[in-house]
């Protein structure tokens, strides 16, 4: 098996487009049981995974636990990643989002959950974007594009993605009809997609 010298390790941010085939290649090596390749995958994806999970769960200890589960899941199921169906980043972050949201929703009945909802209503969780980001350019781009959304689009998208709320909960939080929220989530994301120039 080919081993990459450590010095080869790339830590300067490359443009996202040039980066994705490399991550896909690393995942192929991981799928063959290559732990060295996994270390590189870890280094690449952990800031986004941890950041996203932390944003949804807020609690640092829980976030760490879930981020660990996600990365172990990446290791276990690397062979299931199909590059024709999406980018490696999206695959990993979808896993991360699902895990974090599962955790949140399993607390559904608990008082913690109630407190979260209350907090979301009183404070404004909408405009918190990560402070210690590694990919600052990307962050800035996303922030600018989020600003092109209408208020309701933006809130629907953020509450669902960063807050981990289901669309029913979002509708309740924003006191809007379900149908409206469904539509806003979709046209909000479509506008973001076009603004960010996503090609898929």
């Amino acid at each position: 098996m080919k081993e990459e010298p450590l010095a080869h390790h790339v830590d300067t941010p490359e443009p996202a487009i040039a980066e994705s085939p490399r991550l896909a290649e690393l995942l192929r090596q991981v799928a063959r049981g290559d732990e060295r390749a996994f270390e590189q995958v870890y280094d690449r994806v952990i800031p986004s995974v941890y950041g996203l999970v932390r944003k949804i769960l807020r609690d640092p200890a829980q976030s760490e636990e879930v981020a660990q589960e996600v990365l172990v899941e990446v290791w276990r199921s690397a062979c299931r990643y199909d590059e024709h169906r999406g980018s490696p980043q999206a695959w990993v972050l979808t896993l991360a989002h699902r895990r974090a949201v599962d955790r949140v929703r399993s607390e559904q009945a608990s008082s913690k959950r109630a407190a979260r909802v209350a907090a979301a209503e009183v404070t404004t969780p909408y405009d918190e974007v990560a402070e210690e980001a590694t990919g600052r350019l990307e962050q800035e781009r996303v922030r600018r594009c989020l600003e092109t959304l209408t208020e309701l689009q933006s809130q629907s998208v953020r509450l669902a993605y960063y807050g981990g709320y289901s669309y029913r909960e979002v509708a309740r939080l924003l006191s809007s009809p379900l149908g409206t929220i469904k539509t806003r989530m979709r046209d909000g994301l479509v506008r973001l997609r076009d603004c960010l120039g996503v090609e898929w």
Binding site: V49, Y50, G51, L52, G86, G135, V142, V157, L196, W200
Partner: peptide, 20 residues
């Protein structure tokens, strides 16, 4: 869905933060 999932993932990337 593929395009929107990629878009959502960019929201995730934008939340990046230094891990423990």
């Amino acid at each position: 869905v593929r395009g929107l999932t990629e878009t959502a993932a960019l929201l995730g990337t934008a939340a990046a933060r230094r891990p423990p």
